[in-house]
């Protein structure tokens, strides 16, 4: 069973690694970010597979931490992007500048 779980971990990691091509290609920031988010979920999956496979409780905690914080990064980015878009929109609507 341990072997099966390790094989699964290899496969999951390989699959999400292929997804990293999106980081290379873009084109938009969101596309790149999504690829990392996929890697994050995949990384969590690999960690839990290894944790259960080897019976290491500490790896479950590491997966828990990763799950908590990895998505936090994409949310922080998205929030900042939204803020920036809002600020730009406000600047656009300022008097003297025509609505685009």
């Amino acid at each position: 069973m341990v072997d099966t779980l390790t094989v699964s971990a290899v496969i999951v990691l390989a699959i999400v690694a292929v997804g990293l091509v999106r980081v290379l290609r873009g084109p938009s920031r969101i596309d790149r970010m999504m690829a990392v988010q996929l890697l994050g979920s995949g990384g969590v999956a690999v960690l839990v597979l290894l944790a259960v496979g080897s019976g290491t409780e500490a790896l479950v905690d590491a997966a828990l931490t990763l799950a908590l914080l990895a998505a936090f990064a994409s949310i922080a980015l998205a929030t900042t992007l939204v803020q920036k878009a809002d600020l730009a929109a406000k600047a656009d609507r300022a008097p003297g500048k025509p609505e685009s």
């Binding site: 994050g40 990384g43 290491t56 500490a58 790896l59 905690d61 590491a62 997966a63 931490t65 990763l66 908590l68 914080l69 990895a70 936090f72 990064a73 922080a76 980015l77 900042t80």
Partner: peptide
């Protein structure tokens, strides 16, 4: 495992946030 936890919290987490 202690380092993995640290890396998950700092390397994978907050460092990414400030850089992004």
């Amino acid at each position: 495992y202690d380092v993995a936890l640290t890396e998950a919290a700092i390397g994978g987490g907050v460092t990414g946030v400030i850089l992004l």
